[in-house]
């Protein structure tokens, strides 16, 4: 089976209104820029997006919010986005906030074939309301479900034609976890190489989890908080 496609448009060819999508990245670091641009162009609607953050006003998932493509956002932190705030306060957007580790581990569980996880995060707080909990060794844990998502859109540094992926630095973040959790996982990479070019010992995401892969283009890699020190 050939997993390689030419670009994001081709990779997202069957993605339709109303689906649930996992999007990798932390802030604007390691986000699938090409896939997001294609989603904006395709203008699919009523999407449920699961991503740690919701981009900024003019980049990342913020571009999809601007076109009102997102029905529901599941994230751990959604600051830095005025349009998001406006839609939320107007009741145009549904938001579910969940702890960051819970978000990550619910992806992991999906990729590991486990229906639930137990985590202490949020026990005794309002996010525990309506959730099953259980005590282990005198401590309370919440039961949280593995995600079931139609698509996962991830960004890697390098990938091969078998779909094996390698990430770079902290752009790894949620990408390998989400890659494991999509019914259809689409990987965009900065450099696509022939199978056999990557050392099997250094693969982060084995290709079995990846259904479509393409070499992205024109990466902006926008920096959210450029912070530097002065040379002494």
């Amino acid at each position: 089976m050939n997993k390689v496609v030419n670009n994001a448009e081709e990779a997202l060819r069957d993605l339709s209104d109303g689906v649930t999508i996992l999007l990798g990245g932390f802030g604007l670091c390691g986000i699938p820029e090409n896939c997001i641009a294609a989603l904006v162009k395709k203008n699919v609607k009523s999407l449920t997006c699961i991503s740690n953050n919701a981009g900024v006003d003019d980049f990342g998932i913020g571009l999809m919010l601007k076109q009102k493509q997102v029905k529901k956002m599941i994230s751990s932190y959604v600051g830095e986005n005025a349009e998001f705030e406006r839609q939320l306060l107007n009741g145009e957007l549904e938001v579910e906030l969940i702890p960051q580790g819970t978000l990550a581990t619910r992806c992991l569980a999906a990729g590991y074939g486990m229906p639930v996880i137990y985590t202490p995060a949020g026990a005794g707080t309002e996010i525990a309301i309506g959730k099953e909990s259980r005590e282990f060794n005198g401590k309370e844990y919440l039961m949280e479900y593995a995600f079931a998502a139609d698509y996962a859109l991830v960004k890697a540094w390098k990938g091969d034609t078998e779909g094996n992926l390698i990430y770079r630095a902290t752009a790894r973040n949620f990408n390998p976890l989400m890659a494991m959790a999509g019914k259809i996982t689409i990987a965009e990479v900065e450099e696509l190489v022939p199978a056999g070019s990557l050392d099997p010992d250094y693969i982060h995401t084995p290709g079995i989890y990846v259904h479509r892969i393409f070499q992205g283009s024109n990466y902006e890699k926008r920096i959210e908080q450029r912070t530097v020190q002065q040379k002494q």
Binding site: F26, G27, C29, G30, I223, Q225, T227
Partner: peptide, 16 residues
């Protein structure tokens, strides 16, 4: 240092 920022390398506050 200025000019050596790496967009793939940030902290939890999204700072380089």
């Amino acid at each position: 240092f200025a000019g050596e920022e790496d967009p793939d390398l940030i902290n939890a506050g999204k700072q380089t």
